[in-house]
């Protein structure tokens, strides 16, 4: 199995996003590095709009992720409700 990951800038907005990702992916591992935070998991990771909205306390457009996204790994699929990352191996 291969690891997928998403790396976000470490700031006020992404604190809620990372918390949301942790809730939706109990097996995910969160790694803090200078100015950035990496969330990784085996094979599959999902980022859900509804969970982010709960955490951040406002409406959230999935494409807002673009602003604080540093990098990611895995095949991407995004719609208005979720972003998923997967490796097919």
């Amino acid at each position: 199995m291969s690891k997928v990951f998403i790396i976000l800038q470490a700031n006020e907005e992404t604190r809620s996003i990372v918390e949301a990702i942790e809730q939706d992916n109990p097996d995910a591992e969160v790694v803090h590095e200078p100015a950035m935070v990496k969330v990784q998991a085996e094979g599959h990771l999902v980022v859900r709009r509804e969970t982010i909205e709960e955490e951040i306390g406002r409406e959230f457009d999935m494409q807002e992720l673009n602003i604080n996204l540093i990098t990611l790994s895995g095949n991407v699929d995004e719609d208005e409700d979720a972003l998923t990352l997967t490796w097919n191996s």
Partner: peptide
């Protein structure tokens, strides 16, 4: 760097 890299995620994709 990070501002550029936020675009790179799209470029990589």
């Amino acid at each position: 760097g990070f501002s550029a890299q936020s675009d790179e995620a799209r470029h990589m994709t």
